[in-house]
Structures are given as structure tokens and as C-alpha cells.
Design a protein around this nucleic acid. Structure first.
Lengths: 344, 344
DNA sequence: AAATAAATTGCAAGCGCTTTAATCATGGCA
DNA sequence: TGCCATGATTAAAGCGCTTGCAATTTATTT
């Protein structure tokens, strides 16, 4: 059994023209079904695998979707990223598109790397995550007309591009209402210190719900830290837990922060949820395995990734269609880290 | 300022031929230095970025090195993988080669995926990790003549391909000697249950050192589990810790196992290292943060990745050079999880 | 049966780059 | 001045595939 290394090898073997074979393999319906099957079988038998570079050059499509993989902080070890990337991959694979993970070593080079990725034709489209307020990456891709979808928004509105987000505002408002109903009046907010839009929206949700109560007994202590700074995080947590007037309920904008807070609180002898209620966001696996289980919101990472892949494929196929935006409502995952406010 | 979207645009702008411009950009020394500089400047000014598909098709080089990203188990969340991939990326980036991370959804499809990756020309070479005994991926790539390097060996010898490994045999022998000298006689081995070569070699190191003593007082309890099976792991650990004759010192073939063992032992009231000494392997970050700190071996993941990248680049550039093999000796990281054997 | 429409397949150009072999300048030397 | 070595540049042929359009075959209609 000889091998077919190129389309024309295969075409010669079949007594067809390369054009027909190319169309047959692409399931063009101008080609008779019988022919398509014949070609598919021959391709399999002769171990023919199309040359992707040639396909890309001829068609103008690379068959890759790009994702910038942040290497700072916990890098790939981020449980969020792992699940996200897995599901993106599967979402694309169904359509024969592969995910090109482009590792971003230092944060500074990200924009240039993104530009090179698209202008060099290595990818047909981009999935952006961890969107910041007025994210320059969004601006760049919009200006270039490159198909892309964003996991998150650059602002509360977010028009002019396709995005999918989980509604952190309603989630944090819901969390506040729950804790308020349980008698809590001294609230804490544990957050990060950058332009990430998700934390801005979550904070906003809390602030609005808080303000809407108009309850003079309410107080809010806000502590935040830089994204990749363990010491800053420890300081913020210490500040949150200090003094007799410390909060009885804390919302953390991410589960990672919530878990650290929980550990620190327990280390200084506080009982959870007896002395302190904690609610996080994301529903990372570790939150289910600590004691008490972390009450949090499920960010539907897997579904989001699947959906984003489909959205990007749609944009690549039809770039002129109107933009799609999807706002998912995160579900509260009730576990044991929250409870009634302690008696004064 | 107009933009140059293709080589010939750029060439026309410069009054040069495409051939010259191509060579100039590639720093061919047949091109006068002055011309090279002139071309580089024009390319920068006109925002020219070469089309990678065209380069790949013409040169037969994709500019990508491939790495199969296992999505099973902890997937990307594996701390080992994260560091490994980061350093691979950087190692390649210096030479203008990018790392193509090809996500492997289910384990069964890995071989086919690997074959498609190389025959489709998407990658110029492959980095293989988690090598198993008689690994079929190694066989496949050798048969195809594709440049690749392996992180690990298919057997103690490992000839016919380039590999880099850390010497688990000497490490585990060293760990045994250390614990023996501390008075331990009842040993335990916590391992996994598959064909991964590294665990086979580490076990072998222990077994040999153990046998070499010829000490009738010595005993060894071996417990193992499947790779991605939390319950099996729990069972293996329970078995290791059961009964009055349980080991006083356990070697775990990976830090992850060691940490779980430590947690389980502490949960059942054992003091570490008072009642039980534990030594792991890999030196993952978490091992430094538990109490007591985990004594382990440093697997030099970062250095290995950097070195492997260089090795692969060398193979791609000169496939006919003799194979390189490197055996690193892991350094013992002394922390607090080991100590003298408890008094009978 | 002829004419027309529909279903298939093939021709040929070209995607943007690299590379071999050839051409063109330039200066050194007799 | 003429010839050759050396250095610098270019012409042209692909790399393996896709795709617009033309050509061919087959089915349908009158």
C-alpha cells in the first residue's frame, strides 16, 4: 500500500482532478455523494493528511483560533484557566478548528504578541478572557476587524463586539440580600486592585444593593490587593479581620481570595460561619473540599467556554452578522460558609 | 504611511526584489549589511508581518514546536505542567519558534492526534513528556523520522532518540539511605499503577538499595493506585497507614501523593515526622507551604524545559546529528517531614 | 429525439513566501 | 585596458492547496 502525500497523488490514484478531490474532502455538495465517499475511503487507505500550511495559504484560513495564555501569577496552574481551555478546545475541535495557545511571558508584551498573532495569519480569530475596563486588546481587534469574542465586558454596556459574561452585579446583590436577611449589618468586601471588569461589576452590585437599603446600621469595609501579590493579599485579609468592629460577613470577588480569608480567619480562632460568613465567586473545585464548604456562585466556566467557541466560529464564518452578547446569571451554590449574624 | 501586506509590497517600496527582501529579513549574510538594515527599517515602518502560512509552505517549516497537553486528571491545573510549559515557551521563543499546545481531550486519541500533528506539517518537532515504558509515541515519531525530544525515557537505556531525565533511581536510593541511617526499618512506598517510566525507575532505585542492605529487619509495604482515581488513592494511603506494623517511613513517587499521605496521616493523629517520615519527589510549590514542610527532591522542571527546548531546536536544525541524552541528578530538598525513626 | 436544465467534474490561476541557479556590478591585478 | 574573482542582487520555479468559471456528462422535459 503506497502513501499519498499530496492532493495530486491522491487525485491521480483516483483518476480525478485535484479540484474534485479537494472539494470532496471538504464535503462540498457540488460533488456527488458517491464520489465523496470514494475519495474519503481512498484518503483513509492511503493515509493522506492535508498540508495545513498549503490549506491556510490557499484559503486564507489558518484553522486556528487563538487564546493568550497568561503565564504570570499561577499561570497554567489556575484551575479556572484549565477548565476554560479544555472546553474551548472541545468546542472548536468539533468544527475542525484547533486552539492555538499562545503563551504570554510578561504582561507588557501582550498587545504586540496579539497583533503579530493576527497579522501573521496564524489564527482566524481570538478568544479574549480576563477583560479589563476599556481593554486595549478589544480596541486593537476591533480596529483590525479581526473576529474575536470576549469572556467579559470592557464596561457595563459593551457594544461593538461579541461577548459573554456572567452577571456579577446581580450575583453580589443577591449575596448581600441573603446575608442581610440573615441579620448581618457589618459587611466586608475582599477584592483586587486592578482594572479587571468582573471585579468592578461585582463590587458595583454589592455597593448598589448596599446603598439601596439606606440602613444607617450598615457598614462596609473594603480591602483590596494587587493581583499577583501574596503579601498584599495577606495584608488586605488582616485588615479585614482586625479590630472589634470587624465585618461579620465578607464577600470575596474570587474563590481564591475567599479560601485564603477563610484559612486566615480560622487561624486566628474565628469560627465560620459562627463568627464570620464568607461568600465567594467562581465555584472552583477547592471550595467544595474545605471545611466548611465555601458558599459561592457558579461561574459556569465550562458552559461559557463551549458557548464562546461557538460564538467565535460563527463570527469567523460570517463576520458581518450583528454581534452577539450573552449575560449568564450565576447560580448561588449554598454550602456552609455563611449563616446567621452572630449575636452582639 | 501606507502598509505593506506582502513581501512584494515591501520589495516594491524599497526598489528591491522579493528574493532580496526575503533574505534580508532572514539575516542571510549574502545580503549586504546595509541593505539588511534598510529592509528591516522599512518593514518596521510599514508594519510588515510575514504570512506564516506562506513561509511554512515555501520553506517546509511551520515555525511551531508541538506539545501534547493532557486534559485528563488535573489538566492544566497541574503545577508541574504549568512551569514546564512556561519554560518551554521561553526556550523556543528566543529562536522565533512558537509552542503549539495541542490539547488531548481523551487519552485514547493521543496517538492519532500526534500523527496528524506531524503529518499535517503543523509542527516541526515535538516535545514529549510523561514517557511510559515502551511508549508508543516514541515509536511512532522514530518511525516517521520526526524530530522530537523526550522528557523521560522509555526504558533504563533509552537509545535511538534524544531525551532528558532526572535520575529517580539514585534519588530514591539516596532517600532510602538517609532514612535507614535515621533508624527506619519499616518502609512504605506510595506509587501509581501505570506504565509511567519515572515511577518505575524510582521504585527500582528504592528496591535495589533495599535489597543491597540484606538486612532481615527491613520490611517494605508497597501501595499503589491508578493515576486519576481519588478513591483508589485514598485506599492506597489507608492501606499504607493501617495496622500496628505500619511503615515508619514512606517514599512517595510524587509530591502530590506525599501531600495527601501527610494529610491523611495527620488526620488519623499521627505526628510527622515523629511517627512517620515522608519523602516525596518533584518539589512542587505546595510542598513548601504545608506543615511540616515536605522533604523532597527537586526535579528541576524549569531547567529541564529550557534544556529540552534547546535540544529540540538543535534536532530540527540538524536531524542527522547523533542523539543527545542528559541525566540530571535531582537535589534533595531537606525540610521537616522526615526524622529519626520512632522508638519501639 | 432534440432541446434544455441540472448535476458533476476539470482547468488554471494564484495564495505569499523561499530558494536554486543565474545575472549583474565592482574592484583588483596583470 | 581587459579579464577574472568576489560580492550583491534577481528571475523564476515551485511549496500543496482552494476556488471561480468553464466544460462535460447525465437527467428531464416537450
Amino acid at each position: 500500500m503506497d502513501k499519498a502525500n499530496s492532493l495530486s497523488d491522491l487525485a491521480r490514484h483516483l483518476g480525478l482532478s485535484p479540484a474534485t478531490v479537494s472539494r470532496a474532502l471538504a464535503q462540498h455538495d457540488a460533488i456527488a455523494l458517491k464520489t465523496r465517499e470514494r475519495v474519503a475511503k481512498a484518503a483513509r487507505d492511503l493515509g493522506y493528511v492535508p498540508n495545513r500550511a498549503a490549506q491556510a495559504l490557499a484559503s486564507g484560513r489558518s484553522g486556528f483560533a487563538g487564546f493568550l495564555l497568561p503565564m504570570r501569577g499561577r499561570g497554567l496552574a489556575d484551575p479556572f484557566l484549565g477548565e476554560f481551555v479544555s472546553n474551548l478546545t472541545e468546542g472548536f475541535a468539533a468544527k475542525g478548528v484547533e486552539l492555538l495557545l499562545s503563551a504570554v511571558p510578561r504582561e507588557g508584551s501582550e498587545l504586540r504578541q496579539l497583533e503579530s498573532l493576527v497579522t501573521s495569519g496564524r489564527v482566524d480569530g481570538i478568544v479574549l478572557s480576563r477583560i479589563e475596563q476599556d481593554d486595549p486588546r478589544v480596541a486593537l481587534l476591533r480596529a483590525r476587524g479581526t473576529p474575536f469574542v470576549a469572556h467579559g465586558r470592557t464596561g457595563p454596556e459593551g457594544t461593538g463586539y461579541s461577548w459573554l459574561d456572567t452577571d456579577g452585579r446581580v450575583a453580589f446583590a443577591e449575596a448581600f440580600e441573603l446575608l442581610y436577611a440573615l441579620g448581618h449589618r457589618r459587611f466586608g468586601l475582599l477584592s483586587i486592585d486592578d482594572r479587571l471588569m468582573f471585579r468592578i461589576l461585582r463590587e458595583e452590585g454589592l455597593h448598589r444593593a448596599f446603598a439601596a437599603k439606606g440602613d444607617p446600621a450598615l457598614s462596609l469595609r473594603h480591602a483590596s490587593c494587587a493581583r499577583y501579590d501574596p503579601e498584599g493579599r495577606a495584608r488586605a485579609i488582616a485588615q479585614l479581620l482586625s479590630g472589634p468592629e470587624r465585618p461579620t460577613a465578607v464577600l470575596a470577588v474570587a474563590d481564591g481570595l475567599a479560601l485564603e480569608l477563610m484559612a486566615a480567619a480560622q487561624a486566628q480562632g474565628l469560627s465560620i460561619p459562627g463568627d464570620l460568613s464568607i461568600i465567594g465567586f467562581d465555584n472552583i473545585p477547592a471550595g467544595a473540599h474545605v471545611t466548611p464548604g465555601l458558599t459561592t456562585f457558579d461561574a459556569c466556566i465550562a458552559d461559557s467556554a463551549t458557548e464562546l467557541a461557538a460564538m467565535l466560529l460563527a463570527r469567523i464564518a460570517a463576520p458581518d452578522q450583528p454581534h452577539i452578547t450573552r449575560l449568564l446569571t450565576p447560580q448561588l451554590v449554598l454550602r456552609q460558609s455563611h449563616g446567621p449574624a452572630p449575636q452582639a
